[in-house]
């Protein structure tokens, strides 16, 4: 379960930022996950629910936004989306592609609800 390692990093960053902003309750968290990151969104969400228990993020929704793989051809410079993990240029059929996105794995933002009680 490498999702556990990832979520423990997420909780550390999240709670640290929440403390700095004086947040008392977290309603949702948005993470961006590139398709080149063998990370299963459902596993991530399941893990987050467990890790968030007894913290200010308990019950918060984890929104996992998947980022498609994009690349640039080293030979002709064409930019393209890489579908089906076939790294081949649409234009010149060259196979040398530099990945420009799809490696993301970061927390984008979170929603704080400091509703007065």
């Amino acid at each position: 379960m490498h999702e556990a390692s990832i979520v423990s990093g997420l909780m550390r960053i999240l709670l640290d930022h929440a403390a700095r902003h004086g947040v008392r309750r977290i309603a949702s968290v948005t993470v961006k996950v590139g398709r080149l990151r063998s990370v299963e969104p459902r596993a991530l969400i399941g893990c987050f629910e467990v890790f968030a228990e007894d913290t200010i993020a308990e019950g918060a929704e984890l929104l996992v936004e998947s980022v498609p793989i994009r690349g640039r051809c080293d030979d002709c410079g064409a930019e393209m989306e890489i579908a089906g993990f076939v790294f081949r240029c649409d234009r010149c059929q060259g196979g040398r592609i530099t990945v420009t996105s799809g490696q993301e794995l970061y927390i984008d933002s979170f929603e704080a609800t400091d509703a007065l009680s």
Partner: peptide
């Protein structure tokens, strides 16, 4: 409710 941007690698 307010949105707080983080942008930090997990």
């Amino acid at each position: 409710s307010k949105r707080i941007e983080v942008i930090e690698n997990l």
